[in-house]
Design a protein around this nucleic acid. Structure first.
Length: 329
DNA sequence: CGCATTTGACCTGA
DNA sequence: TCAGGTCAAATGCG
């Protein structure tokens, strides 16, 4: 391969490019292996250990690629217009609530806690046809009417925030009514040990025409993820304590910033969201209506580095590293 | 009675 | 200044 080819990156990128390509190619190979294993697991329940073995290797490979990109990147290769990715297509309606509520009791407690509003931390966004039950214990701590949004946003934190200091939080908001669509934004990762029930994500290769998923790792901070362990901790997809199995489907690559629009527009044709998911195959979950139907959009982001990877589709088609037009999104 | 949820006020970043 | 995120008292539920 010609490493002197004109590139959108600064000059030293050509030096790292081989490393980058090698890492990406290796990542593809490992992912292919993982795909095979995952497919086998649909029929046989064994083999999970090799899956867990593969994931760190995949992550290391991608991390190297990321590192190469970053080292070659004196400026900003890609920008995240907004670190928290949330502007719902359904939020353009009229305001449903006037926020000018009268603050009725001025005799408020003198001081609330010395809380600091978290600066943007890593987030993962999922859009699903039903509220998600990810197997974690969440405690609702707030609800807020969001400007120009029809539905209020609900705020949850891990039940074990107090006893184990778990910092994970999530926001759930209905963004569409018909068909129902819920966006769940996870922030932070679980540091608690609570696995009250197994995560209930679905992998069903027999329904590959019914759903899709998107992984989007975004980051724009000065606290880069530098190794695979960190990646595992930061992204629930790769965390051993959060091993979702995802329905997948083949779609074309879509830039992350277009996802909101696409998930909105493509429903009629490709059913990003799967109302007809075989819920009978789901483990029934006390307290949740349908268990988990994770057939929607996953968007993972950390808010600090300039990295954004969006995957849509089958693993077969996700990694087109051979393509000349493969560029960081 | 203990824990979770609700709800309005407070706080912070943009 | 405002919108969004968090706190914590009040309330509800098992």
């Amino acid at each position: 391969m010609d490493t002197t080819v004109e590139s959108p990156w600064p000059g030293n990128f050509s030096i790292d490019r081989k490393r980058l390509i090698n890492s990406l190619v290796r990542g593809r190979e490992l992912t292919t292996q993982l795909q095979t294993i995952l497919c086998n697991r649909l029929g046989h329940e064994d083999g999970s250990l090799s899956t867990e073995d593969l994931l760190p290797r995949i992550l290391r490979s991608f991390t190297e690629a990321i590192s190469a990109l970053k080292s070659a990147d004196s400026g900003e290769v890609c920008q995240n217009p907004s670190s928290t990715n949330v502007s719902s297509p359904s939020c353009d309606g009229p305001r449903t609530e006037d926020s000018g509520e009268s603050r009725k009791s001025p005799a408020v407690k003198d001081r609330r806690g010395d809380y600091k509003r978290r600066k943007v931390s890593e987030t993962w966004t999922k859009i699903t046809p039903t509220p998600i039950d990810d197997g974690r214990a969440w405690r609702k701590y707030g609800q807020k009417v969001i400007l120009n949004c029809k539905y209020p946003r609900n705020y949850y934190r891990c039940t074990h925030k107090n006893d184990q200091g778990c910092a994970a939080t999530k926001q759930v908001q209905q963004i569409e009514d018909d068909p129902p669509k819920y966006r769940t934004i996870y922030k932070g990762q679980h540091t608690c040990k609570d696995i009250s029930k197994p995560p209930q994500f679905i992998m069903d290769s027999t329904h590959t025409d019914s759903s899709s998923f998107v992984l989007s790792f975004q980051s724009d901070s000065d606290a880069p993820i530098t190794n695979q362990q960190q990646l595992q901790e930061h992204h629930p997809f790769f965390s051993s304590s959060f091993p979702p199995i995802i329905k997948q489907e083949c779609q074309e690559e879509i830039p992350n910033h277009e996802m909101e629009e696409l998930t909105h527009n493509q429903q009629s044709s490709s059913q990003y969201f799967l109302p007809s998911v075989p819920t009978s195959a789901l483990p029934s979950t006390p307290g949740s209506d349908h268990g988990d139907v994770i057939s929607g959009v996953y968007s993972c982001s950390t808010s600090s580095h300039s990295l954004d990877m969006s995957f849509v589709g089958d693993f077969d088609d996700v990694f087109h590293f051979d393509d000349d037009d493969f560029f960081p999104v």
